[in-house]
Design a protein around this nucleic acid. Structure first.
Lengths: 154, 154
DNA sequence: CGGAAATAGTCAGTGCCCTGATTAATTCGG
DNA sequence: CCGAATTAATCAGGGCACTGACTATTTCCG
């Protein structure tokens, strides 16, 4: 009888939080476009013509996952993929008109959804919520590339 | 140019948090046993003989996902599945000796991992972190079953 | 008792997420 | 200039997560 209380495990909590978000997204935003897909659309609204790898970096998806997401968005006609004439390895990505329209529509709904999602917290609590999660995620993220040796600095 | 700042979107943050956790788990806890699998082992240490659906409820996994997770743990010999003689629909689950040993080993490592994961936060911040995430997740979870009509109470 | 409703579990289908291996194109160094 | 290292993308493979449809069993009620 050495069971542990999962509610004190940040990983478990993080998973539950994401599930809760998934649920709300599905009912309040879209059943077709997922949250990661929206993130990709958003990245390409901000910076049209990005290549696949960079989009992945912007939204936090690895090369394999971003390839799948982009392929789905392409199949649905929300973005175009053309080979970079300057560098034949890359594909340059750009939203179609339909992609831009979809992004605009979902932006509104997403904002509403975020309000409902965060409604249990006061305004101050919401900013603490963001701050704490960001700090934890950033720190763990940093552990991945161990001590990037700074250029010319002991 | 109506792009949105994803760092103010709780869903995006939740996803990043979980990715960060996944990363740390893989390097500090286990490459074979995943965090959801550990949650199942833990539930069965606490309450041996649970049926599949209830385990899913305890750890927050739907019927399909819990079935897969349990099937993997069964294949690896960490738990046994026997049909309930009282109710032929159910399977009763119980850890094997190997399952108990594995749970014990991972419990130690998980504790260490959680410390590293939460290290960026002070002790008070950590409890706020738990509290805020739990409240948001619980509230969204509650929206799923809309207003369970209380028994005999207008 | 016997049919309808409820419940536990499976299955098919979609999508996210990662690692490690591979392929194609570019860049770097001798 | 040419081979080696690097880089962008793909592919194979494993695992998580959900919905909707289906099967088997049990329960509920007339």
């Amino acid at each position: 009888m050495a069971a542990v209380d999962l509610t004190t495990h940040p990983g478990h909590l993080a998973r539950r939080l994401q599930q809760a978000h998934y649920l709300l997204w599905n009912t309040m935003v879209s059943e077709e476009i997922t949250s990661p897909q929206f993130a990709v659309l958003n990245a390409l609204v901000a910076e049209p013509g990005l290549d696949q790898r960079t989009v992945g970096e912007r939204v936090g998806l690895d090369r394999s996952t971003i390839a799948e997401v982009i392929s789905r968005l392409g199949r649905r006609g929300l973005l175009d993929k053309v080979r970079d004439p300057q560098d034949g390895r890359r594909f340059l990505l750009r939203l179609t008109d339909d992609g831009v329209r979809t992004h605009r529509k979902l932006t509104v709904r997403t904002a509403r959804m975020n309000q409902v999602f965060l409604a249990p917290l006061s305004a101050e609590e919401q900013s603490v919520f963001f701050d704490l999660i960001r700090r934890v995620a950033d720190a763990a993220e940093g552990l991945r590339n161990p001590a990037e040796p700074l250029v010319a600095q002991g």
